[in-house]
Design a protein around this nucleic acid. Structure first.
Length: 708
DNA sequence: TTAGGGTTAG
């Protein structure tokens, strides 16, 4: 796309400033700016060390320094200065000759001729592959090799060995035979095998051996080392070996280059990736689909929609046709950037271009439709999949089931689940059962949920903590406390490790128990998982305990809880207090929850409107918050302070098919208090009161009901 | 896996 921009670029245009926060992601601007900074008409602000011939073998990161420090990360003031001093720079051809960063020709593979002893050697390799050997027995079998281990014979066997251990042993054995001098290709084949076993240390040892024995490391060697380091999450090692290659004077070809692009991308170093990409483009490199896939993945991870668009436009401008992997990566990226509509169009474009989607394509799309709550699109896609015979696998099925759970599609989920049971390649696993338990749990069908729980061992599927949580929630809602206890005990005995979400679930069941025996039974389960939490519940029930003690214990319990579970815990604790007629304790807990940041954005004030946002609160917590708010307003009215025109309380509508909706509970509490809030007709899930009505109501409260 | 690079699930 940069190649199609007009001949002159006005740098004063804000879009041309890549460091303007508004344009942080504007890659067009970055590209233009890059080119301008490195054009002869616009000399770089700092000396461009990469163009210094004396620095021929400097590492790439050193070469990139002038770029990353001056072009992409310069403080904004320096940037502004540069822009001011060069207002009328001229656009130049970015493809002008400059020192390359990569070799445009991919390293050629050596040709191998037909080996007349192929059959016997393959059979021998098969014998080595199939047997279970100790190291010594493997070596003794090697002595039975049907033909001498010449270069070609040894290479054929080495290529045929499947396990990295055997390949490594064979490689070392060949070396001891001294039949021929070891060559790069032997190291490369062995390294590839070691990479399957993620044996980076062994690979590095081999690489150092090559250096010691002066055996040439080529692009294949380096790319194998780099990708192995990457797969072992040893990104620093990957970069280290890439730099080492540069220092030896070996130019990477596009395979090594995209491997290192991916390393920087996985490190989240977007600027470095772009610098590398731009550098290579300036060397007249035409990126291939793999390179674009790397870029697309990187932008997807960052949720950077401008970046995704840039990838699409670059491909279009360069005439590179995306393949299925590129489409998959782009679709996934669109999903992460929150663009379901664009993902849908891109998918249609892919099908129209004649490409057939694979299971990964469909998984990405189903996930996007589920997240966007586009049930019609999701189900239509499912129909198309069946009609066209597009490939499926268990991940796709599980994604479909999760989508059904999110959208409340019970019958569809049962059909899919049945399909899975009938299938050969997608038998239900613990994910599938979890999704099914979630669906029936949310639907309130505890019988079906229990049926699923009982059948799991028959199919050899282990229950996981999430499935257990769904089932416990379902049984709790159905009031089947004895079954709940049985399921909990069985789950823990089967190896489920309760986490904070499961504890939160038990706590929420406890909060709705009307029967004291049931309440104690649920707390008994919770005690097995989190005894401190149970002790805290008991402490709350003890009216002789003062607020300071509650504060102290609250702090301990909450700080030991994962961040995501803190607010649910606090909500449930408030609900428990209200159910046990401990209203003041509920108010104390709401106060503590607010102090410790569990309810950010609960109160919002503008000059015209004060609002209470209870969408993340439980019913009891929302009631408590409303009461607290009314107490505060009473005090303000009494003090005759300034009040806004409008008061609003936001409960939300609950988009989920199964959601109970906070609105109804809130409405009945408002009516119990006889407070003048009315549900808004224009704004769904919103309760509104006018200042005059609220003031009259507050004044009529004598003694104020809400302060009780 | 037949000497090297990129894509799927709470």
């Amino acid at each position: 796309m940069a190649r199609t921009v007009p001949a002159a670029v006005d740098l004063r245009c804000p879009l041309s400033n890549p460091l303007d926060p508004k344009n942080r992601n504007c890659l067009t601007a970055r590209r233009r700016f890059f080119v301008l900074c490195n054009s002869p008409e616009s000399p770089p602000r700092v000396s461009d060390r990469s163009s210094d011939p004396r620095r021929k073998n400097s590492s790439l990161s050193e070469q990139l320094k002038p770029l990353s420090t001056s072009t992409l990360s310069t403080p904004r003031t320096a940037e502004a200065h540069a822009l001011k001093s060069k207002p009328k720079s001229t656009w130049v051809n970015p493809a002008r000759p400059k020192r390359s960063v990569l070799n445009p020709n991919r390293q050629a593979r050596s040709q191998h001729s037909y080996n007349p002893r192929m059959r016997e050697l393959r059979l021998f390799a098969q014998k080595l592959n199939e047997g279970e050997f100790s190291e010594s027995s493997f070596l003794s079998v090697l002595e039975e090799i049907p033909h001498p281990p010449t270069r070609e014979n040894a290479l054929l066997i080495l290529n045929s060995l499947k396990s990295w251990q055997k390949a490594h042993l064979f490689f070392n054995w060949v070396k001891t035979q001294n039949s021929f001098p070891m060559e790069t290709i032997f190291y490369n084949v062995t390294m590839k095998s070691l990479r399957f076993g993620r044996q980076f240390q062994l690979i590095e040892e081999l690489a150092n051996e090559m250096i010691r024995d002066e055996i040439e490391l080529d692009n294949i060697t380096y790319s194998t080392i780099i990708t192995c380091a990457k797969r072992c999450y040893l990104f620093d090692k990957a970069v280290e070996w890439f730099e080492r290659m540069y220092k030896t004077g070996l130019m990477p070809d596009e395979v090594t280059y995209s491997a290192i692009l991916d390393v920087y991308a996985k490190l989240g170093k977007v600027e470095e990736v772009l610098s590398l990409y731009e550098r290579a483009r300036a060397s007249e490199w035409k990126p291939d689909p793999v390179a674009f896939s790397v870029l697309a993945k990187m932008f997807g991870e960052a949720g950077d929609y401008d970046g995704i668009r840039y990838v699409l436009e670059e491909m279009r401008a360069l005439g590179v046709k995306p393949n299925v992997v590129v489409y998959n990566t782009l679709l996934e990226a669109m999903g992460k950037a929150g663009k379901p509509g664009l993902a849908r169009s891109l998918f249609e474009e892919m099908v129209e271009s004649g490409l057939s989607p694979n299971e990964k394509t469909l998984t990405a799309l189903i996930k996007i439709y589920g997240k966007a709550r586009w049930s019609r699109d999701a189900l239509e896609l499912w129909e198309r999949m069946r009609f066209n015979g597009w490939p499926t696998d268990f991940i796709l099925y599980n994604t479909l089931l999760s989508m059904c759970a999110d959208l409340g599609l019970v019958e569809e989920a049962e059909r899919l689940f049945e399909d899975m049971k009938q299938s050969e390649n997608a038998q239900p696993d613990s994910w599938s059962y979890t999704a099914m338990l979630n669906i029936h749990g949310s639907d309130g069908n505890s019988d079906r949920a229990m049926e699923l729980f009982e059948e799991m061992p028959q199919f050899g599927v282990e229950l996981n903590v999430m499935g257990c949580t769904c089932l416990i929630q379902c049984l709790g809602k159905a009031g089947r406390v004895d079954d709940l206890v049985r399921v909990f005990d069985a789950s823990v005995n089967r190896g489920v490790q309760p986490d904070d979400r499961l504890c939160g679930c038990l706590l929420s069941v406890a909060s709705v128990c009307e029967d004291q025996d049931d309440f104690l039974k649920v707390l008994g389960c919770l005690n097995r998982a989190n005894s401190k939490l149970v002790n805290f519940v008991k402490l709350l029930q003890d009216e002789s305990v003062n607020f300071e003690k509650v504060t102290e214990e609250f702090k301990i319990v909450i700080s030991e809880t994962t961040v995501e579970a803190r607010r649910p815990f606090c909500n449930c604790l408030i609900d428990i207090c209200r159910n046990q007629n401990l209203h003041e304790r509920a108010h104390e807990l709401l106060y503590l929850g607010s102090v410790y940041g569990l309810y950010p954005g609960l109160h919002n004030k503008t000059a015209d409107e004060w609002s209470l946002d209870v969408r993340s609160l439980s019913v009891g917590a929302a009631q408590t918050a409303l009461e607290e708010w009314m107490r505060t307003l009473s005090r303000i009215v009494k003090r005759e302070e300034v009040l806004p025109q409008l008061f609003s309380a936001q409960t939300g509508t609950g988009t989920h098919k199964f959601s109970q909706g906070l609105a109804n509970a809130f409405a009945s509490h408002v009516s119990k208090l006889a407070a003048p809030f009315r549900q808004s007709e224009e704004r769904a899930g919103m309760f509104i009161a006018k200042r005059e009505d609220l003031v009259l109501w507050v004044q009529s409260q004598d003694p104020p009901a809400v302060t009780a």
